[in-house]
């Protein structure tokens, strides 16, 4: 079984938000507690820099900072790599929120506990894709494959850092063609300046 995780094809993602709405539909979270978000990069289209939309949720890291930080053992990393949070055990202390460098766990005021993307593990266990992946209309968000896991690292995107050494199960895929190279080149130049 391949490890749970996401590939985001930055050349394809148009920031349309269907993945966010599909997650909301599936999981029923509210405005204040988004499990998936679109983080835009350079919407002002400053010359030289690419414009990207990062659709991000929990990265289901290999060494999750949330799990390390949780004092009550509410987090578990399943054999297939899905990092799940047991609401019953969550104390609402918000340590995981502070520990996760990617802002994945969100605090729900109403229930007083944390919430987080669970990789739609019920769907996955029934042989379906996570809701966000199923909904992406351009095929930008796809399930991680072992091949991609090996071939690339998120660090191949300049500016993407992993400060807590979590080793996210997230990859940015180059689908072929010269587009990403062109944009990466632009971005390196901007960062160098």
């Amino acid at each position: 079984m391949s490890r749970a995780g996401f590939i985001l094809d930055l050349d394809r993602c148009v920031g349309c938000g269907a993945c966010v709405l599909a997650c909301r539909m599936e999981k029923g979270w509210s405005d204040e507690t988004p499990w998936r978000r679109i983080v835009p990069f350079n919407l002002d289209r400053v010359p030289g820099g690419p414009t990207w939309h990062f659709s991000v949720a929990c990265h289901h890291c290999e060494d999750p900072a949330c799990l390390r930080a949780c004092p009550s053992g509410a987090y578990e990393r399943r054999a297939d790599g899905i990092v799940v949070l047991d609401g019953e055990r969550c104390l609402g202390c918000r340590y995981c929120e502070m520990a996760c460098p990617f802002g994945a766990p969100v605090f729900d005021e109403r229930s007083g506990i944390m919430m987080k993307c669970d990789f739609c593990h019920e769907r996955v266990d029934n042989g379906h894709s996570p809701a966000c992946i199923a909904a992406c209309p351009v095929g930008a968000l796809i399930r991680l494959t072992d091949e991609d896991l090996e071939a690339t690292s998120p660090a191949s995107i300049p500016g993407f850092i992993d400060p807590a050494g979590c080793r996210p199960s997230l990859r940015f895929r180059e689908p072929g063609g010269n587009l990403r190279e062109k944009r990466l080149e632009q971005l390196r130049k901007v960062l160098e300046q």
């Binding site: 349309c16 269907a18 966010v20 709405l21 599909a22 539909m25 199923a134 909904a135 992406c136 209309p137």
Partner: peptide, 9 residues
């Protein structure tokens, strides 16, 4: 097999 965010909403 796709809709857009409006269709989901």
């Amino acid at each position: 097999g796709g809709v857009c965010l409006k269709g989901l909403s």
